[in-house]
Amino acid sequence: MAGAGDGTALVRVSRPEAGIAVLTLDAPASRNSLSRRMIATLDDAIGALSEDPDVAAVVLAATGPAFCAGHDLKELMRHRGDADGGRAFYDETMQACAGLMQGIVRSPKPVIAAVEGVATAAGCQLVATCDLAVAATTATFATPGVNIGLFCSTPMVALARNVSRKRAMEMLLLGEMLSAEDAERHGLVNRVVPLARVREEALGMARIIAAKSRVTVAIGKEAFYRQIEQPLAEAYAYAASVMVENMMARDAAEGIGAFLEKRPPVWKGC
């Protein structure tokens, strides 16, 4: 998939096996930073895969030593010379990035980050936004905006929904690097494995998801993100209604029947 403008590919799409798509950020020279073109290209790719009936799960990887270094600071600084000092460009960029992150959350397909390098600022936000994350033992994470006078306010949204408040504030206020082991301990990533195993570990998780009922996974993912923002009583009421609707699905009848009959289920995705 090519980025808009000069035709340079920013995100590569591959289908290594049935039901699984891999999106690879491929701008190592800029440390896979989230330029406006990168944001638009990745957003388009996520949107297309969300609608693809042949895709059950998505792995998000990157080339080079950085998974993603956050926003393209050089691009942002170039617009300081705009008539409005860059305000319009900055507003459009932050809104576009927020749209990308929400698109990942809204996608019915689980997205698994395969983090082999550094993930900082909006790159750390991208990892936190993905449904699951596998990191190399050498990967590091940070929200270091405070160090350069630009607090990581938008990365804070995803970060604070993954780790404890005290840990999120520590990362945001100190701007220090977090090791992969600490990221796992604090809930930012699910698993830490040797560098050579990162993509296979992520593919293994995607493979397990792809073997399940796609309608059930989609129902569950949407319900998870909706209920987690609700008060307890509302969350239970909502989740109960989701369970009822899920029970009415053909795959639920098939799955329960297969379990009782001690046979493998045959999913229809409905």
Rank of each mutant, 00 (worst) to 15 (best):
P53S: 03
P53T: 02
P53F: 01
D54Q: 14
D54E: 15
D54Y: 02
D54L: 07
A56P: 02
A57D: 05
V58P: 06
V59Q: 08
V59K: 14
V59Y: 15
L60D: 03
L60M: 09
A61P: 03
A61C: 03
A62F: 03
A62D: 04
T63A: 08
T63Y: 03
T63V: 06
T63P: 02
T63Q: 12
T63K: 09
G64P: 01
G64M: 07
G64L: 08
G64V: 06
P65C: 05
P65W: 10
P65D: 14
A66V: 07
F67K: 10
F67Y: 15
F67P: 01
F67W: 14
C68A: 12
C68V: 01
A69S: 11
A69Q: 08
A69C: 06
A69L: 05
A69D: 13
G70D: 11
G70E: 13
G70T: 06
G70P: 02
G70Q: 13
H71Q: 12
H71I: 10
H71D: 11
H71W: 14
H71K: 03
H71G: 09
D72T: 01
D72Q: 04
D72Y: 13
D72M: 04
L73Y: 15
L73I: 13
L73V: 11
L73R: 14
K74R: 14
K74H: 15
E75W: 14
L76Y: 12
L76K: 08
M77Q: 11
M77H: 12
M77S: 07
M77V: 02
R78Y: 03
R78T: 00
R78N: 10
R78D: 11
R78A: 08
H79S: 00
H79L: 02
R80W: 03
G81S: 00
G81P: 00
D82L: 01
D82G: 00
D82N: 00
A83I: 03
D84E: 05
D84Y: 05
D84K: 03
D84R: 02
